[in-house]
Design a protein around this nucleic acid. Structure first.
Lengths: 115, 115
DNA sequence: TAACTATATAACAATTTACTTATATAATCA
DNA sequence: TGATTATATAAGTAAATTGTTATATAGTTA
């Protein structure tokens, strides 16, 4: 059994389609180096909370991200155990950093950093 | 002006969505090292000719592939002048070769190699 | 415990997507 | 030139997608 599994085209297409949405792509790029909670995404994207939750659910269902409850917040992070993690990070590498979006939250004082 | 332009997220998402379809992803992977015509794709994917043409059109409209007429056939190839070419090939690198699909055509004698 | 905050889910509507069939165009061949 | 082959495009349809609003759930706080 090989350590490096070759992704099959069908599944690769599913992953690419998931990343083929500006909101989800930016989310995943943000999670490349950070952990974020739902309410931060809501503020960053200026979208309704259900819409954000639904995007996160799709990413979670595919195993690309994982959630972790910390008191009232649920934090999401990139799932580095996913068989798709190397594929996804190789794509993210080519995208511009989205850190300034988090910097703005910090300036406004709405960045959540609990525990 | 930098040679290496940083892709913006909106456009990157559009490209990823285009690749997020099994048929189109396989087409682009095939075109990584080959040139193929429409009728070859029709046979490989066992899909209707209009459906194949429509997929190719989307890829062409985005500038990812280009077409070239050679007598009655129209051959498609990856457009290495596209600003997205490096991005796309970096994704294709991680996907399994689809060459065996062309090998089958050669066996059946339906591979088009004109001019 | 009641009110509040963060999040998820359900139900629905508008839009987009990916096919289909029918038809048009362009090149070749008899 | 008429028939054939390769391809594109148009129109229509079913399914998928992405947002919305309403509501449920779970934790926190007064």
């Amino acid at each position: 059994m090989s350590v490096q599994t070759v992704p099959d085209m069908q599944k690769a297409a599913v992953i690419l389609k998931l990343l083929g949405d500006k909101t989800r792509l930016t989310m995943v790029k943000l999670l490349e180096n950070q952990t974020c909670c739902v309410c931060e995404f809501v503020e960053i994207f200026q979208m309704s909370q259900p819409s954000i939750s639904q995007h996160l659910r799709k990413l979670r269902d595919a195993g690309l991200i994982r959630e972790e409850r910390r008191s009232q917040w649920i934090f999401y992070s990139l799932n580095n155990d996913s068989e798709w993690y190397p594929f996804v990070t190789s794509i993210l590498e080519n995208l511009p950093s989205q850190e300034e979006k988090l910097k703005e939250l910090e300036k406004k004082g709405t960045r959540i950093t609990c525990c």
